[in-house]
Design a protein around this nucleic acid. Structure first.
Lengths: 340, 340
DNA sequence: GTGAAAGCGCTAACAT
DNA sequence: ATGTTAGCGCTTTCAC
């Protein structure tokens, strides 16, 4: 009770070995005989020994902690963190998350410094407008980004296949018979948003459908932007019969706008989202969407990071995971009346 | 470029003082003349000095980091973390979040140990079925819990006023003219769920409305449980005309069940939730609910924790924040046909 | 008000 | 295979 957590020195003393041998045994390094190792590990367990990561870090070792910096209050991020946490634990690592504020106008240095002092590497889910990239690369720390950050980013990244997903979404609508298909874009500072937009354009062209620039409404992945973008699309004449929104949240906003205009989904307009967030299936109508493997993305990010941490090259500078079309109730063929 | 982060010793040398004086100056401790202090702080800034929290911790000091342990993938938690992060930063603290897995069947010790090695205190948003409480109290670390954990919990807590909120919800339905009001409970291991249930019972009794035990359907705050509970309620004869769900997510599940049964919200059944999560306003119909000040709860938790950290008693062992009725489209008076 | 010494718990480097 | 030495960057004594 007096010493709730014994130190390595105490464990070593009880085991009758040097501190260094105890360290090697507990961290599964080479240089200890099998017997001694098991002996020491058993004693450490019995004594309730827990390594002090601060000390471990200070003396230049690995902490087996990975850091995540993310804006937590989006479903996408939360799911990804969940997947990442599982993968980290499975590998014997712990994971700590730094929750970035919405509008971080402080120098990002402090966050990065903090994480570097604690973690062996960082997974960065960065806000769009940030100079975090520089700061991170100056920190000489293994980093994986989620969503490709562009050519200027020196870090390996994990993303889902936004281009193929976008093509699938548009193709789905076209196959239902829609011809006036509109697009609500995401924040184009992110490659994912740019890819989805490009997929929309390419697919429309390949299908021989007319591309009216007015049918591309700028959004930024937020619900509000989806709402406003949809209002602009609804003012068009002729009106689109279907909308491909860059993510589920903006699709939600779009559906609100459609209903506020006295129209119905899917009878008057079909809507496809992107992400498949948990509520998507519970909406009325349930949302047709392109599912991203969010948890899988988190797991992949962790596994890439662990490779980096142990000094390997990243297996690939960019990992792209497949998406999947989930057809639900928000998409139907256009009614004859609308096909005009 | 060689030494990206100078150490305190280097700062002290440049400033021409001892390391200890530099430490005192930078941490705003007493025992340094005003001039020297400002001088040292300026030099430290210029050199880009950043305190090494691992070292700080190791030598028995405070790190100015607070830890949060939480299940991140609920909106409630995410909002709370957001509020907490803001308050922490405002007070010059950083905050790190440990994301608890869904079904944590590992000994919770490692998490607590990790946080203790890094943080000065912890805000615990605990899963229901946990022995984290013991582990935390054994760790001799300042702790604040969110949602009152019962008499056995030794920790100060922050919560919203579930009892008053629940009363308001039931009263709202009664004032609309509903008499057969059902309740979908939350996980009753949490005081918040018990309080909402108690509020339901008390208010029904006070209003002279009949309490049919079958009208109380057990849930656990999850969408699925709301769905299943609602199905049980819909099988009753006579059917309730209104449902008070213990949170928004289970209300969402209930609405799905109602619709799957071919009924409409609010025409056939009114529904009230609890929380006011961001999507609540975007549903169709938008959800009437009891708003909890989630971000404010986070801020209060941080402020209580900071008091504990500097050695003050908690201002109060339990802080209860007020809730607010938000009337939207999911509640209307019962139609004459239903009043039977 | 200021400084010197000691040590927090650990690991890398260098013995043996 | 094991032990010894040194030191990570800081703060707490306890001097002056």
């Amino acid at each position: 009770m007096k010493k709730p957590v014994p130190t390595l020195a105490e464990v070593a003393k009880v085991a009758g070995v040097s501190q260094m041998t105890a360290s090697r045994a507990i961290n599964n390094r080479s240089g200890v005989s099998k017997e001694k190792r098991e002996d020491i590990q058993r004693i450490a367990d019995e004594m309730g020994y827990v390594v002090n990561r601060a000390a471990q870090r200070l003396s230049g070792g690995r902490t087996r902690v990975i850091g995540v910096m993310a804006q937590l209050h989006t479903t996408f991020t939360a799911e990804l963190v969940l997947g990442a946490g599982g993968a980290a634990r499975a590998a014997g690592y712990e994971m700590l998350v730094y929750s970035l504020p919405d509008n971080d106008r402080r120098p990002p240095g402090s966050v990065v410094d903090l994480l570097r002092q604690i973690a062996d590497g960082v997974i960065a889910l960065l806000p769009y407008e940030s100079d975090y990239l520089e700061t991170l690369s100056a920190a000489h720390l293994p980093v994986i980004t989620v969503d490709y950050r562009g050519e200027e980013s020196p870090f390996p990244s994990v993303a889902s296949d936004s281009y193929e997903g976008g093509r699938t979404a548009v193709r789905h609508l076209a196959e239902l018979g829609h011809r006036r298909i509109a697009h609500i874009t995401g924040n184009e500072r992110l490659a994912s948003a740019r890819d989805r937009r490009r997929a929309y354009l390419d697919t429309m062209a390949q299908l021989g459908l007319a591309i009216d620039p007015a049918q591309i409404a700028t959004g930024d992945f937020s619900q509000r932007s989806g709402f406003e973008a949809a209002n602009r699309l609804l003012a068009l004449n002729p009106r689109p019969t279907a909308i491909f929104a860059a993510n589920d949240i903006s699709a939600l906003g779009a559906i609100s706008a459609i209903r506020d205009a006295g129209l119905r989904v899917p009878e008057d307009l079909s809507v496809v989202g992107f992400d498949d967030i948990p509520v998507a299936a519970q909406l009325h109508p349930p949302l047709t969407t392109i599912r991203q493997p969010m948890q899988q993305m988190g797991r992949s990010a962790v596994n890439m990071l662990l490779a980096l941490i142990v000094g390997l090259e990243a297996p690939s500078p960019r990992i792209t995971l497949p998406t999947q079309l989930i057809v639900r109730g928000s998409t139907v063929p256009p009614t004859a009346r609308l096909r005009s």
